Amino acid sequence: MAQKITYQELLEAGVHFGHLTRKWNPKMAEYIFMENNGIHIIDLNKTLSCLDEASFALKNIVRSGRKIMFVATKKQAKDIITDEATRLNMPFVTERWLGGMLTNFATIRKSLKKLSQIEKLMKDEAFTNLAKRERLMVTREKAKLEKLLGGITDLNRLPAALFIIDVKREHIAVTEALKLNIPVFAMVDTNSDPTTVDFPIPANDDAFKSISIIVKHIGKVIEEGLAERKKDKEDVASKKDEEEKRKVDETVA
């Protein structure tokens, strides 16, 4: 089982630092411990509790063979999200969220198909025979599509859930998920509305250290879920082999 994060580790990573009190969202009141020098301090005991709840749900989703889409377009979250999602073979969005990425997924799939066709064309000998200007246009188109859709190239159906850094910034993604009844897991700071997501994790969503410790923990939980799924499949295959062997033995007997 993934090792639990301790209160002290969250404290050292600055997970407890919220926004200025004048920028708060009153709906975050239950997750706020106190005010200090005009800044709201997040209750880390609540963070730990919410993290446990989110981890349990995420692991079950992954164990069932479904995908979690990571979403974070803010600078301090991009690299850690890209690294973890890539390592876990999960879809991710770290550039601009395209309106309709979920609610108009059929159109997004067309764009993914176009990217695949361009990649195929560029490997073909015919590509080298194109005029320099045409090659340049194709290359630019590929770069543009890769930048926007590079993290979801293997996504052939809607994700089972979203994991978001900063729900206020990624409000379009939250809205689309809500319309499609896709559960949302998210780091929620004191300036955001936690009621817009299914599994809010009260935490500082602006500092790299804070984002990193939460995302890496979620990554370990997902990794564990993937390992359990692999074991489940192996157990099923083993039982099937045993059953077939038993039938053969009975027939021979």
Rank of each mutant, 00 (worst) to 15 (best):
Q3S: 09
K4S: 08
Y7C: 04
E9P: 03
E9C: 07
E9K: 11
L11D: 06
E12I: 07
V15M: 01
L20D: 14
N25K: 06
M28L: 07
A29E: 01
A29G: 02
E30R: 01
F33N: 06
F33S: 00
M34H: 03
N36W: 12
N36D: 00
G38P: 04
H40F: 11
I42K: 01
L48N: 05
C50F: 02
L51D: 04
A54F: 12
F56W: 14
F56T: 15
A57S: 13
A57P: 02
L58T: 06
L58W: 07
V62Y: 12
V62C: 02
S64L: 13
M69V: 06
M69P: 02
K75Q: 13
Q76K: 08
A77T: 14
D79T: 15
I80V: 09
I81M: 13
D83W: 14
D83P: 03
A85L: 01
R87N: 12
L88Q: 02
L88D: 03
M90P: 01
F92W: 09
T94G: 03
E95N: 15
L98S: 10
G99F: 13
G100Q: 01
M101Q: 12
L102G: 05
L102T: 08
T103W: 05
F105Y: 11
R109Q: 14
K110H: 02
K113M: 11
S116C: 08
E119T: 11
K120N: 13
K120V: 11
L121W: 10
M122A: 04
K123S: 00
D124W: 14
F127H: 03
T128W: 05
T128V: 04
K132S: 14
R140D: 10
R140I: 08
A143W: 11
K144V: 15
K144D: 01
K144S: 09
L145N: 05
L148Q: 10
L148W: 07
L148V: 11
L155N: 02
A161D: 00
L162K: 06
F163W: 06
I164L: 09
R169C: 13
L178K: 08
K179G: 00
N181W: 02
I182A: 05
F185E: 01
V188C: 01
V188H: 08
D193S: 10
T196D: 04
V197S: 03
V197Q: 07
P200L: 02
P200Q: 05
I201M: 07
I201T: 11
P202F: 03
N204Q: 01
N204H: 06
D206C: 09
D206F: 05
A207D: 09
A207F: 08
K209P: 07
S210F: 02
G219T: 11
G219A: 13
E223A: 15
E224Q: 11
G225A: 03
G225T: 07
L226T: 00
R229M: 11
R229Q: 14
K231R: 12
A237S: 08
K239Y: 11
K239T: 00
K239W: 00
K240A: 02
D241W: 07
E243N: 04
V248G: 00
V248P: 00
A253N: 12
